[in-house]
Amino acid sequence: MDTHAALYELGKARLEQLRQLPSNKQQPLQERLAENGISRREFLVWSATMTAALALPMPFSSLVAEAAELADRVPLIWLHMAECTGCSESLIRSSTPDVSTLIFDHVSLEYQETLMAAAGWQAEENLDAAMRNYKGQYLLAVEGAVPTANGGAFLTLGCKGRTGLEMVQEAAAGAAAIISVGTCASFGGVQAAKPNPTGAKGVHAVVDRPVINLGGCPPSSSNIVGTLMYFIMFGKLPALDTFNRPKWAYGARVHDNCERRGHFDAGEFVEEFGDVSAENGYCLYKMGCKGPYTYNNCPQVRFNNHTSWPVLAGHGCIGCSEPDFWDDMADFEKPLGRQLLHGLDATADTIGAVTLGLTAVGIGAHAVGSFFAGTYNDEDN
Rank of each mutant, 00 (worst) to 15 (best):
L340F: 11
T156G: 01
R40E: 15
R261K: 11
L15R: 04
M229N: 06
C217H: 05
S39N: 10
A145K: 05
G364Q: 09
G86P: 11
Q26Y: 04
S94Q: 10
A6F: 09
G291A: 13
L33Y: 07
P323Q: 09
G174E: 11
V254K: 01
E125D: 11
Y230W: 15
I351Y: 00
A153E: 14
M58E: 15
A55C: 08
R41F: 15
Q17D: 08
G120M: 12
M287E: 05
L29Y: 02
A149P: 14
W46D: 11
A373K: 11
C317F: 08
S95D: 04
P218V: 02
Q300R: 14
N377V: 01
K160D: 13
K25L: 02
L76V: 14
P323A: 07
L63N: 08
I178Q: 09
T156H: 04
A53K: 08
L140W: 06
S180R: 10
T227K: 13
G337W: 04
F60A: 02
R93A: 11
C217T: 09
A185I: 09
R162L: 14
G37M: 06
N304S: 15
G182R: 12
E166Q: 15
R19H: 06
N280W: 05
D265I: 12
G215I: 04
R41W: 14
F372K: 00
D331N: 10
A205N: 06
N305F: 07
L214C: 09
C283A: 08
R93P: 00
T355Y: 01
R338H: 11
P210Y: 07
S39R: 08
L10N: 07
K194L: 06
Q112K: 10
H80K: 15
P299I: 03
M50K: 04
G151V: 02
A6W: 05
W309M: 10
A5G: 05
F243D: 06
N257S: 09
Y8A: 09
L165A: 07
V146H: 09
H315W: 14
D345W: 14
M116I: 13
W309G: 13
E170F: 06
